Simulated scan of single mutants.
Amino acid sequence: MTVLVVSNVRPWGDPPADVVITDGVVTEVVPAGSAPAGDDRLDGGGSLALPGFVNAHAHVDKSWWGQPWVPAGGAASTRERIAYERGHRERLGIPNVASTTAVLRELLRHGTTAVRTHVDVDLGTGLRGLDRVREAAAALDDAVELTIVAFPQDGVLRRPGVLDLLERAAASGAAGIGGIDPASLDRDPVAQLDGLFAIAERHGTWLDIHLHDRGELGAFQYELIIDRTLATGLRGRVTISHGFALGELPPDRQEQLLDRLAEAGISGTTVAPVRTAPLPWPGLRDRGLPLGLGTDGIRDLWSPYGDGDLLRVALDFARLHGLSTDEDLTRVVELATVGGAPFVHRASHGLVPGARADLVLLDAENVPDALVRAPRRRLVLAGGRPVVRDGEPLAG
């Protein structure tokens, strides 16, 4: 048994405390100076302490991070972006272990210790993206814990053979399988969802459907996904990512859809993109529906943006939703930390006994100050192991 004491920190801005970690798990949080002696001790110096950030929606296989700058392609629609990516990824060697490792290092540098990542599975790459991502995680000694979703970025039905690849991915240990715009991309929403739900039921995987379609077309697909979830054994195991339509509906229509989402236990993730409608996140919270924050792609053929800092995504979320009170700003940081636990299949995540000891120390006055300034991460622990010190990863 190994005991580590992280002393003199301020969990969530509370009075100074000591965090006691035993074999990589938080066992006690006690007033500063009262922790028993351990095998090792780290002085937190009065830093603000937060749980490790949870990136609930990433695509770490797509990035060209570490390679020379790649100009954006100018593609506007989802279909055009898919085509542009497919036409240029081979010259960049995407997917590859080096770029994926570099992206994971950036996530870790900013305090992210757990990630749900979508990994492309298609007729061009087959399943090799899954292997590349696993190799990259191993190169960092699994300092970033990954939950992998096999993702059919190029569509499901319009590319015969993709359903078979998703079946193989699920059989090989992927935690989830994905779907994308059943109506506008495959143009057969019923058949796409039938195929995906059947695989998820057979293998006990989670299901994460990217839904970019807007307005009533998007709402229609929400309803189809809800119907399938209620008709199967997947309640509480389905996520709708992006889901822009939910924020665009009239209030009474939103309320109706929120009630049905709660009945089916369907969660959501967002990357808080600019120029989209705010989501009814208080309604999701009041119904106990998880909402996770993610970076989406980082420096890839869809977009040149992103640095891996989930605090910046959380700030974008706060701005998009017009939030300014300390209470609301703190709630947004909760979305980026403890609120992400369901998306990486953790029953507990936080600075509480029984949780994996993922801990981030920052020089900030309080949580709102950390959100607004996004200061350098002074120390990051993953499973009780120091993995970042003074902003520099120690792993990989």
Rank of each mutant, 00 (worst) to 15 (best):
V387N: 03
E80P: 13
R377K: 07
G322R: 00
T117K: 09
S184Y: 09
Y222P: 00
R319V: 07
L279E: 05
W69S: 15
H210D: 08
A336H: 02
G292D: 07
P36L: 05
G111R: 10
Q67D: 13
V338G: 03
D43N: 13
T117E: 13
Q67N: 14
G74I: 12
L323M: 03
D181Q: 05
L207P: 04
G46V: 03
A245H: 09
V238P: 08
D369A: 08
N96H: 10
A56K: 11
S324A: 10
D358I: 06
F197A: 05
T2W: 10
H242R: 09
F317T: 02
L323N: 01
V29S: 01
P189I: 12
E106G: 07
V20M: 02
W206T: 11
D208H: 15
V54C: 06
F151A: 10
V333H: 01
V313T: 00
R202E: 13
L165K: 14
P304T: 04
V133G: 05
R237H: 15
F197K: 05
P353F: 07
A75P: 12
P11D: 11
D227H: 09
L351E: 05
Q192G: 07
A83H: 15
D40H: 14
E216P: 01
G161A: 06
L146M: 10
V70P: 12
A262L: 03
G384P: 02
V25C: 02
G308P: 04
R346H: 14
L42V: 15
T325L: 00
G265K: 07
G236R: 13
S303F: 00
V97N: 03
E334W: 10
G306N: 03
L381H: 02
A174P: 04
G350I: 08
H345D: 11
R377M: 04
A114L: 10
A150M: 12
R235Y: 07
L42D: 06
G247V: 12
D18H: 02
G308Q: 04
R378N: 01
V271C: 06
D259R: 14
A170E: 01
E28K: 11
R228A: 10
R158K: 11
D358W: 03
A336F: 08
D363V: 00
D296Y: 00
A98Y: 07
A76H: 15
L165Q: 08
D141Q: 15
P31E: 00
R346S: 11
P182D: 12
G161D: 12
T325R: 03
I199D: 11
